[in-house]
Amino acid sequence: MNISLKGNSGCHQLCTMWADVAASMLYAFGSNGRGQLSLGHLEDAHTPTPCLIPSLLPSVPPCVIAAGGNHTVLLFPSGECFAAGDNTGNQCCLPSATFPSLTAFHPISSYHRWEHVSAGWSFTVLIDYEGKIFVSGKGQKGELGLGEDRHDALLEEIADFSPRKVIQVVSGMAHTLLLTASGDVWGWGAGRKGQLGEPTQSIVSRPRKVEVGFPVSKLDCGKDFSILVSRDNPQHIAILGNDRYRIGDSLASWSGAEILDIQASWNGVYLLETSGTINAWGKNDKGQLPPPSLEGITDIAVGSEHALAIAEDRTTKERKIITWGWGEHGNCGKPGGGDVIGEVFSLDIPAPRNVRIGAGCATSFVWVEE
């Protein structure tokens, strides 16, 4: 699952310190059984907790948090990457076991910089500024895109595949999609539910073009489905793959305003409109869908079965960070843990103009610059 940190807009030797570089703070809460929150331990955090960070971590906010099943990768505007969590399959792009605190992993060369990153359950996909695609991790369903006999890799390039300028990469639990500047989509990994288009294949072990019938402007991956927005008609949104909650029917009848953002959870789709409202469809047994009364939403970050948002009062302009949905691991920030159903929970964290939010697999992140 790939999460851009939302807002208005290396070294193997880890030297940790509390995150106060350049008057900024990175908080994390939720599932942490493999150290993916970078807290220095392996216990879940039920309330926002300051992360441990390496001393060389950039002082600017990361542009992307890629959250896998039990690992997290932060990509910074400088092209540097830092990872934390489970690395038993090299999904943290390093040859070691578990990293309970963020650790830098070296680029391929001294001039090498990453431009895009995504993470699936036990793998990571990285794209450099030359458009070369690298994979790291493990998977039995073609997740690495290296061919049908390859189930593990450590920062290995997908050879003989270099599409034109890539503008987005996203991963679900076991499949990945690339979006190019021309609006073309390429994908690989698990395809049994049709999430990689036609023809349906259980395993797509090498990148193939996904035929959708229109140029795409934005996309995202759910657990076993894909969501794609038309570049020519932003109100035309296609869903490929498992649609057990009939999201496609809802999208077909949706006649909303301009879309500010679109994201997918494991089993849902969330549209943030420029009006500040959210339209969402999908699974809702744990309150995954937002209360209908929400307004003044400026940013949203959707995780596996929960979400964070920034809400602004239209009169006072006061801003707050809210959460809702499945919160068993504390990923909604509610003291003691627990789901937030039919309402929202307000975090006790300031929400200045430059606050950033992120959400992953039962994990949540907030970057605050004061």
Rank of each mutant, 00 (worst) to 15 (best):
P100A: 11
S101D: 00
S109K: 12
S109C: 09
S109I: 07
Y111V: 02
Y111F: 01
H112N: 11
W114E: 11
W114Q: 15
E115V: 01
H116G: 03
H116E: 09
S118Y: 10
A119T: 00
A119P: 00
G120F: 02
S122I: 09
S122K: 14
V125Q: 15
I127E: 10
D128C: 12
D128T: 10
E130W: 10
F134S: 08
G137F: 03
K138T: 10
K138Y: 03
Q140H: 12
G142N: 15
G142W: 05
E143D: 05
L144N: 05
E148P: 07
D149G: 03
D149A: 04
R150Y: 03
R150S: 06
H151S: 08
D152S: 10
D152Q: 09
D152C: 06
A153F: 05
L154K: 10
L155I: 15
L155M: 15
E157H: 09
S162E: 15
S162M: 14
S162V: 04
R164I: 13
V166P: 02
Q168F: 13
V169Y: 11
V170E: 03
V170S: 02
V170L: 01
S171I: 06
S171W: 06
S171C: 12
G172I: 15
T180W: 06
W186F: 15
G189Y: 00
A190D: 08
A190H: 13
A190F: 14
K193N: 01
G194W: 04
Q195D: 02
L196P: 00
G197M: 06
E198G: 02
S202G: 12
S202R: 12
V204G: 01
V204R: 02
R206K: 14
R208G: 05
K209S: 05
K209N: 05
V210C: 09
V210M: 09
V210T: 08
P215S: 04
V216Y: 11
